[in-house]
Design a protein around this nucleic acid. Structure first.
Lengths: 175, 175
DNA sequence: TGCTGATAGTCAGCATACTGAGCAATATCA
DNA sequence: TGATATTGCTCAGTATGCTGACTATCAGCA
């Protein structure tokens, strides 16, 4: 039974029995997914914050997608970036509250809301772009260019295969 | 200007201008991180739920780590699985409430709480293991064995390089 | 046309995660 | 020893994400 020890409180020692876990955390894709996402969000917020903006990754993705698809409704937006429709409500609320987008009833379907980016939103998106791109580089800084590409390829492949397994699958319904 | 279209509400067509975004979402590691984590959590909950248990990925990791390191305190636990210390409080609360662990004041340091798994917790951990392992396989089902290994290797490498960038870095302080 | 099922959006409730603040206790060092 | 810094934990507040339920509206079909 392999046993190593760690310092607890810089004071006492507690036995660490790695083989007690069925698998090491580092062999669990789920654990690695959580860690990578945790770092990605922290890096994004740090870079964007340093640039003087207060936008979360989720808000950024929504804003960029609304700009690229003027007048789209919330369900379509959710499908394009794989958000849950119940999450979108709050995200949209905050973007409206910040003056970056407008939400208005659709004339075609009174259930739906059409989303439109404002000039302020467009300005923000333009000025925030360098920070967002910098963040993407920083979260891959441990990998060389080829490794970064390979990581993204494998993530895309795994995600495509698991798309329908989450409540908020990607819906890139092209006509 | 390349323009494609999508169906909105199965009714009208809205132009989709992909080149308007500086980058496609699929070229953003941050976006891929969120998607992969989203799927990983959904798969975990589905598998564990089907097995008849009500444990989140975070609760599972904490429980397994407490079992492997009896008597450890919350800060050490947080460091071993890279949770924020303010998040741990609630997670521990729920594990205690479910009767899976016990939390008691440390005799050595009256600020600290020592965590111990209960028999019930041990039983749960043992019975839940197949579902957890199945979940790890399912979230990689789009990749072959070599690709799965490579994805985990690259994630580990990127995570190691970014470890200090999040508020809750891994603290595997080995003596 | 009128019924039925589906859809768009919201809401309540719960569980991560984080920021920032605060309290109690311990460690450090003059 | 005593002042100061640090540490362990908690809490309030905010933002994702999810489940499940609900309302309003629309679509499809007898």
């Amino acid at each position: 039974m392999l046993t190593i020890s760690i310092l607890v409180n810089n004071q006492a020692t507690v036995p660490i029995a790695k083989e007690n876990s069925v698998k090491d955390n580092n062999d669990m894709p789920g654990h690695l997914a959580r860690r990578f996402q945790q770092i990605a969000v922290a890096v994004f917020l740090a870079e964007v914050g340093e640039a003087g903006f207060d936008l979360t990754p989720v808000q950024y993705a929504a804003l960029a997608t609304i700009k690229a698809n003027p007048g789209l409704d919330q369900v379509t937006l959710a499908g394009l970036i794989a958000y849950d429709r119940t999450t979108i409500t709050g995200v949209i609320d905050r973007l409206v509250q910040k003056g970056l987008i407008e939400r208005r009833a659709s004339p075609r379907d009174r259930r739906a809301r059409e989303l439109e980016i404002t000039d302020e939103g467009r300005r923000t998106l333009r000025k925030i772009t360098p920070a967002v791109e910098s963040a993407q580089r920083i979260m891959l800084r441990g990998l060389n260019a080829r490794e970064g590409e390979e990581l993204m390829r494998l993530l895309r492949k795994a995600i495509a295969a698991g798309n329908e397994l989450s409540r908020a699958p990607l819906r890139q319904t092209e006509a």
